[in-house]
Amino acid sequence: MEYKTMNKEMTLRSVVSELRDGMTIGIGGWGPRRKPMALVREILRSDLKDLTLVAYGGPDIGMLCAAGKVKRLIYGFVSLDFIPIEPFFRKAREAGGIEANELDEGLLVLGLEAAGQHLPFLPTRVGIGSDVMKFNPGFKMVQSPYEDGETLLAMPAIKLDAALLHTTRADRLGNTQTDGPDPYFDALFARAAERCYVTAEQLVDRMDLSHPDKVKANLFERYLVTGVVEAPLGAHPTAAHDLYGWDHEHLNEYAELARQEDGWNRYFEKYVAGDEETYVERAGGSDRLASLPLPAM
C-alpha cells in the first residue's frame, strides 16, 4: 500500500524553489510545441539567474534570454516555426552576451542519450568538418579501436541538474501520458536529469485506473519524475497536441515587441507579472486558449 501514500504533486512555485542559480536545466518540447511554459513563466517571476539551458528551443528560450536569466545555451535550434528565428533569441545572440553552444539537432539527442546511460560520450560522425566544432571548442575526437580505425567525434554527455517537461496528463505517483503525433525528446531529457519536473494539462489520482487505454502514451518511467504540477493550458503560447495549437496572434505580438527598446518589459508586465490565473485571463481567457486550432502543415 506504499504507493497509495506516495504523492508527487507540487506547485509551480515549489518546483522553482528547488532550482538554483547556475543550474543546467533541460526544457522538453520542440520549438513552439509542448513547452512547459507555466514553469518557464514561474522562473521569469523568480530571481533565478546564470542558468545553462538545454533545448530544442522556442519561446521558452527567447523569454528566458530576454529576462537575463541565461548564461549559456546548448541548443539544436531556437525557432517559432512560422517565425523561423525566435526574435528574442536573435536579439540576445546578436548582442553577444550569451555563451552559445550551437549543436546539430541530432548531436543534442546523442548528448542526452549519453547522459541518460551514464556514459562519458557517444561516438558519431555528425559535426565533424563543420563549425559545430567552433561553437563547441571542448569537443574531442576518438579513434575507433577496431580495424577501421575511423576518427569520430566523441559527443560528450549533456548532464542536466533538472528537466522541465509538459505532458497531457499525470498522476500523483509520477506516471505521465503525452498525447500527440510526436513524443519529441522529452524522454531523453527526463533520463539525462538529476531531477525531472512535469507539468500536466490534467492531474489524476491513478493513471492505471483512469487511463489504462492510453498506456502507450507513457514516454518514461515514473522513477524519473520528481514532481508533478497540474497546469491546464500550461503550454500556451506553444501547442499541446491534441488539445490546442500555438497562439499565432500572441506570438506575433511577442515578436513585434522584440523589435522595441523596452519590448520585453512590456511583454512581462502585460502577461507574465502576476500568476497563471491572471496570465490565462490576460491572454484571452481559457475558452479562447483551449480552442486554438492545431497548425496546418
Binding site: R93, G106, G127
Partner: peptide, 21 residues
Amino acid sequence: DPMKPKVQLLGVRGFPGNSIC
C-alpha cells in the same frame, strides 16, 4: 562571426549531420 553574429539566421539545425550522412 558565429560567436557574435551580425545576423542570426536559423542555426546549423540538421545540416552537419545531414551533410556527412
